[in-house]
Design a protein around this nucleic acid. Sequence first.
DNA 1: AATGACAACAACCGCAGTTAC
DNA 2: AGTAACTGCGGTTGTTGTCAT
Length: 189
Amino acid sequence: MDKRPFNSQDAEVRKGPWTMEEDLILINYIANHGEGVWNSLAKSAGLKRTGKSCRLRWLNYLRPDVRRGNITPEEQLLIMELHAKWGNRWSKIAKHLPGRTDNEIKNFWRTRIQKHIKQAENCSGQNSEVINEQQGSSSHVSVMADTVDTYSPPSYQGNMEAFPAPLPAESNENYWSMEELWSMQLLNG
DNA sequence: AATGACAACAACCGCAGTTAC
DNA sequence: AGTAACTGCGGTTGTTGTCAT
């Protein structure tokens, strides 16, 4: 049901990783005109991207208030708590973690926490109904809460400090820092 | 040193809800 | 009231980096 606003230009719509130039264009444009009306923004800014893509890039990566890097143990606890309460309502959960995006939280959950829940299940044997982990529906909330409360994988035994620390974003040299991008944007006026 | 497996993250896709006409 | 356009959300996939063999 996606509308295709660029029918005649489909061939020109870019996909895949954003380039530094595209980021700068988007940052500049939003700095001057504000965000929103993404389809026309994409067109007016001269970006060969869909409005959707621009919005996602801005919200998940370029916004000045996006926090990058490690999810703190406090944040991890909060995520687990809120997920137990609401299930996979990532955007709702993200609202309670300033600077974190729903995408980031979702990825964090899927790559870290879910893995450890699975491990815990295997260790603790056959809690048969536990967990079809893909179903974050509210009907599973209490189950998830129990799981979160009780799971204590041997490696860190419930100590959140011992969670495998995510790699800092800065360690990736192929990416430019937000500070760099924003300073460039400021230089551009 | 080569390479295969796995983890982490960025980005895309499809759907549903909302708004404007 | 009906429909098209747009936005936001959640699930999924693709890419890249890291580690083990």
